[in-house]
């Protein structure tokens, strides 16, 4: 499996680590424990298309949002997580 990092190009998977589901947003702290319980622990965990956070720790150190099929491992899109906010430091 290789990931097309928007900054570095097509790179082998061992340069990256996967954090998991990128569809859940960090709740507003006023949401309390129940909102954070869902954010921190509960996962839709789909078989199929999955938007997930990957970190290019062995490269540009960008956090990426990778859309990948969990059944076939096929990657359909990659974008920087902070796309639209500066150069992604």
């Amino acid at each position: 499996m290789r990931i097309h990092c928007p900054h570095c190009g097509l790179r082998s998977i061992e340069e990256f680590t996967c954090l998991g589901d990128a569809t859940i947003a960090r709740p507003d702290p006023s949401g309390g424990e129940e909102a954070f319980y869902h954010y921190v622990y509960v996962r839709e965990n789909p078989k199929g298309r999955h938007r997930e956070y990957w970190h290019h720790g062995g490269g540009c150190r960008s956090w990426l949002i990778v859309e990948r099929d969990t059944a076939t491992h096929e990657i359909s899109s990659v974008e920087a997580a902070d796309a639209g906010h500066g150069d992604g430091s």
Binding site: T17, Y53, W63, A81, H85, G86
Partner: peptide, 23 residues
């Protein structure tokens, strides 16, 4: 050291990209 660095990167790039900060 490594874990904290990745954590900071996550917090800034994913949670608070509007913060004007470099590390």
């Amino acid at each position: 050291a490594g874990g904290v660095m990745s954590h900071i990167e996550f917090c800034h790039q994913v949670l608070w990209p509007q913060l004007d900060v470099q590390y």
